[in-house]
Design a protein around this nucleic acid. Sequence first.
DNA 1: CAGTATCCAAAGGGATACTG
DNA 2: CAGTATCCCTTTGGATACTG
Lengths: 116, 116
Amino acid sequence: MADYVCVPGHKKEIMAVHDAMDVLNGKWKISIISSICYYSERRFSDILNDVPGISNKMLSKELKELELNKLISRTVLDTQPITVQYKLTEYGKTLQTIINNLADWGMEHRKMITGK
Amino acid sequence: MADYVCVPGHKKEIMAVHDAMDVLNGKWKISIISSICYYSERRFSDILNDVPGISNKMLSKELKELELNKLISRTVLDTQPITVQYKLTEYGKTLQTIINNLADWGMEHRKMITGK
DNA sequence: CAGTATCCAAAGGGATACTG
DNA sequence: CAGTATCCCTTTGGATACTG
């Protein structure tokens, strides 16, 4: 029991990470954002194809939450049948750095667990 | 149905993000990593205090998964009673950039949803 | 196409008590 | 201190069918 006991100086950073994860919670949210991010605009069925394993029910639910948090916008185009486009909002675009870092890390990780 | 249909060029990045999230899944994993990351070494009960709302059962479970994925190491110190220290492995440290980005984003996000 | 509705199984996860 | 074990309710989420 010595000086490795709680150094209060870092509580702020840990809470900040927690705040971020509060918005990005859910099994699929980050993958959905990355799909929209890399294509700049994306339709419902496109995202369904981009994200391996997601169901339409879950996609619908998580898109709603992302829209509520102002990270993405939803635009209905008046085609027949209708088309819906999802885009990152200006605020959502502030996540691009994180998405890019995750993609970089994921590629390195894949190298490591597969071929080396 | 035009040129906004799937541009195959980005599938790789989306899969990479997916691969990363495969390791970082679970409600608590990223918060746990950030706790260990910012203190460089951390004990079980410390992390329990750092991460708001987590239970010992969940902490135990997710620590095991992180250890299995070689992101953290677990060292038992021969004190009375015993002390266990968790640290990031060299591989786990490659996540530091992501953690820092999330902390930055979380702070900005908090500013936005609270006082502005 | 872009969802919604319903059913239901499985996993998540909190509370509490217990152990070395 | 650092967990494990158990109980049990809640949430997740897949499959399928349906709608404007």
